[in-house]
């Protein structure tokens, strides 16, 4: 999960502070709902077709949010576009391979187990950060690693 700073908001043009539910909370809840629905409907998809067809159609579906992002003023913003783009493309390649594995897993097991298990991917993010990027880890993150491993074990039973 990527964490963004509260810098110039260019995703949302709506003023903050006027609504009873804060804007950030609405977006946060919407994120959970969109991803939750995605996990569910992915199961419906792979029950009807192969993971490969699923991945191709998923890619077609990306055209809609891409069109939305292309309207943003910051669509090509960045201090080092070449490096940033290379890393973003790498992210997409890894994400696509992850998707294929996810669809293939969903084909063989229930969504109520596969989706929670794969949602623990921040475990790998933190560990790669420590091992490869030499980031430091706080005790709470170690506790998170332990808890994630317990969750993976329980879901694999």
């Amino acid at each position: 999960m990527e964490e963004r700073s509260a810098s110039a908001s260019s995703w949302a043009g709506e003023p903050q502070g006027s609504a009873p539910v804060p804007l950030w909370l609405r977006y946060t809840i919407l994120t959970a709902i969109l991803w939750g629905l995605w996990g569910f409907e992915s199961k419906l998809l792979v029950d009807r077709t192969s993971p490969y067809v699923g991945q191709i159609l998923f890619t077609v579906g990306l055209a809609v949010p891409v069109s939305f992002v292309l309207l943003s003023r910051r669509r090509f913003a960045g201090a080092r576009p070449r490096a940033g783009l290379a890393l973003a493309v790498l992210t997409g390649l890894l994400g696509g391979l992850g998707n294929l594995a996810f669809f293939a897993a969903l084909e063989r097991a229930s969504a109520s187990v596969v989706v929670p298990l794969t949602s623990l991917s921040p475990l790998v993010t933190v560990l790669v950060g420590v091992v490869v990027l030499k980031e430091s880890m706080r005790w709470r993150q170690w506790a998170g690693v332990a808890l994630a491993l317990v969750a993976i074990y329980l879901l694999s039973l």
Binding site: M1, E2, E3, R4, S10, W11, P65, V66, V69, L70, S72, R74, R75, F76, A77, G78, A79, R80, P81, A83, G84, L85, A86, L87, A88, V89, L90, T91, G92, L94, G95, L97, G98, N99, A101, F102, A105, L117, T118, L120, S121, P122, L123, V124, T125, L127, V128, G129, V132, L133
Partner: peptide, 28 residues
């Protein structure tokens, strides 16, 4: 899938050190 998506957490963060989240999403 967990491993691939986990690594994207690192590469995405690194990408947004250089470009906007929007640009990163387009590359993704």
């Amino acid at each position: 899938a967990l491993v691939f998506w986990g690594i994207t957490g690192n590469t995405q963060r690194l990408a947004t050190n250089h470009v906007s989240a929007q640009f990163s999403f387009l590359g993704f």
